[in-house]
Amino acid sequence: MDLFVANFLNWQSFVMIWPLLAQGLVVTLKLVVVCLPLATLSGLAAGIAYSFAGKGLRRLIVVLIDLLRSFPALVLLVVIYYSLPALDIRISGFWAVVLALCLNNTGYFGEIFRAGLVSVDKGQGEAAHALGFGPVRAMVWIILPQAFRRVMAPCASNALELVKTTSIASIVAMPELLRSARVAQEQTYNPTPLTAVAVIFFLMLWPFSRWVSVLERRAIIARG
């Protein structure tokens, strides 16, 4: 037991490596702050484009969404990070991760918003039209507010997945939280940094994860 504590929960080691982990945490948070709004907005744009589009364009949007969703996020990141230099495009690790996560999550958020907007009853748009609303005003004031309520739970769940996925940045040597912990572990020959990173992620995400569960349960009850 003592050996276990000395190895996995070594306080001294934790104090020593904390500055490194704190830097990593800042990078992780930066990734989240940049990626989450961008991916949500581009997903929303894809969903809105779908509801205004004609048949051909609609099919194209669905194909694009499915294509983006089919890539494992890491495969997308590695392709972007290692293959762009061959085109003489220099991109930093940070922006490679942002690009990969945004593309991938445009697919996920796009599908959520698309399905949410489609699920709003057709009569709502027709009633708005009858009341003299133009298509844009009807979308903004009538359709979107109703769709937002329905997409809350899947959006929150996907946002959580996005935050978790930022850890793949460590694979392209971005010094985010997980990468910093790996570096610290290799320097100290002690796994405490890895325990610490798991604890930090858990403390940071658990309240959010509970909230997602509550939203999902509520959505199931509302549907049933």
Binding site: N7, F8, I171, L178, P191, L194, T195, F201, L205, S209
Partner: peptide, 20 residues
């Protein structure tokens, strides 16, 4: 396991468990 990132779990299993 619902809350932790997959990669964090994987890295822990592979790089931390050998110490045990």
């Amino acid at each position: 396991f619902r809350t932790l990132p997959q990669l964090v779990i994987l890295i822990f299993l592979y790089f931390a468990l050998p110490y045990a």
